[in-house]
Amino acid sequence: MATAEIELDAGASAHPSTLARFYREHERSIIGGGTLLAVLLIWEGVARSGLVDPLFLSSPIQIVKAGIDLFEGGEIWTHIQVSGSEFLLGYALSVAIGIPLGLATGWYRRLSYLLGPFIDALNAVPRLTLMPIIVIWFGIGIWSKAVVAFLGAVLPILIATNSGVRTSEARYLQVARSFSASELKIFTSIILPGTVPFIFTGLKYGIGRALLGVVVGELYAATAGLGYMIGEAGDTFQTSVVFFGVLIFTATGLVSVGVLDALERRFETWRPKAGAAS
């Protein structure tokens, strides 16, 4: 944030009480957590009051119960396994192709001339609209979803990596050339380290795209998977199950991005801490 926020309430003396100090230090978590708790309580209250049909609203406790039932029933494991493989296959494929191709198109100008038109064209098409064609090509099994997840995630990863290479700082390149570094050395010592932050941005963005692909694919045509489960539950008005399924996706997204954040921090010990946010 641009401005350091230091506020002194009028009533606060030079030595605020420990409670006030604790609040000040944890204000973000307290307000955030408090609001979340309040919303859940109100939700539960409204659901119990009978003002709204529970069929529409479900309630936090019902959602938790539905979750427990799902895991006890055991069927959900199949769905998790199917969606998980689709997501991991698609995402791994997009990483395996997006990063090398992004590096290569950033490094070799001619290659970027060659592939640029395809990348731009594909980027302009909302890839999820290709779903029907992909189902024609790959069927309704896990591969069609893996492909949609791949198509969603590969471009952000590729484009971010590419722009990371292209924005390599000229002055570092000059240092390398002045020391007669070989092309390979320039690539590994200058281009690659400078591109890492860009790659992570692409990777994080790709997570959301891949998840979106899995959900849409499973809603569109599938026989198993969490998206399929949500769709089925929606058809039969099992609102709690739908909510629980959505929460699994939310958690997956949060955890994946959290893992990438942690990984990025390990890669980037050289970065000044303040600038890391930008």
């Binding site: 002055r171 570092y172 000059q174 240092v175 002045s178 380290p193 050289w270 970065r271």
Partner: peptide, 17 residues
Amino acid sequence: PGPDRAVVFQDASLLPW
């Protein structure tokens, strides 16, 4: 460029990583 000449660059240009 060759090892017989070495440049001390403007604004340091140290590799930050």
